[in-house]
């Protein structure tokens, strides 16, 4: 199966800028790295006193996602059909991998790189390379 998606540099750039502003606010007010995998994991395994801000942040993400799906459903996964086996395998790999690797696209790819963290540079190159390799082998 070939998947062609349109090249949208300006839209993607502006989305990136909004993400940059969101992580900026988060660091300025809460003093933390907006790494989504860590925030989600910490909600269930972390300290009790951190549960409320984590819940508010994730609640905000869910709300923002809903807003997008009302305004521009074509930008979401609303009508996308995943192969169930691939989806389950993917969720396992993402859950285990981001826990062992201490971060995902946001924590390493954006916040870590912004701080020029060596660990995040290595992590980002690694998950990008393996993501590309997986699509090369399995198809898009």
């Amino acid at each position: 199966m070939t998947i062609s998606s349109e090249f949208t540099p300006l839209l993607s750039l502006s989305g990136g800028i909004v993400i940059g502003l969101a992580t900026t606010l988060f660091l300025l007010f809460l003093g933390k790295i907006a790494g989504i995998s860590g925030i989600v994991r910490g909600l269930l395994t972390g300290k009790k006193q951190d549960r409320s801000w984590r819940s508010f942040f994730i609640g905000g993400m869910v709300l923002g996602g809903l807003l997008i799906s009302f305004l521009k459903p074509e930008l979401t996964a609303k009508v996308y059909e995943f192969d169930t086996f691939k989806l389950i395998a993917a969720a396992l790999f993402v859950g285990v991998g981001t826990t062992l690797g201490s971060g995902c696209t946001s924590g390493h790819g954006i916040c870590g790189l912004s701080r020029f963290s060596k660990r995040s540079i290595v992590a980002t190159i690694t998950f990008m390379a393996f993501g590309m390799l997986t699509v090369f082998v399995m198809g898009a």
Binding site: S5, T8, L11, S12, L13, S14, G15, G16, I17, V18, I19, G20, L21, A22, T23, L25, F26, F29, L30, A34, I36, W53, R54, F56, F57, I58, G59, G60, M61, V62, L63, G64, G65, L67, I68, K72, L75, T76, S106
Partner: peptide
């Protein structure tokens, strides 16, 4: 502020693709 950052973060994700 956590809520606002979360909303903005998702809006950015959506807009970006």
């Amino acid at each position: 502020m956590a809520l606002i950052s979360g909303i903005l973060f998702s809006l950015g994700l959506g807009l970006s693709g």
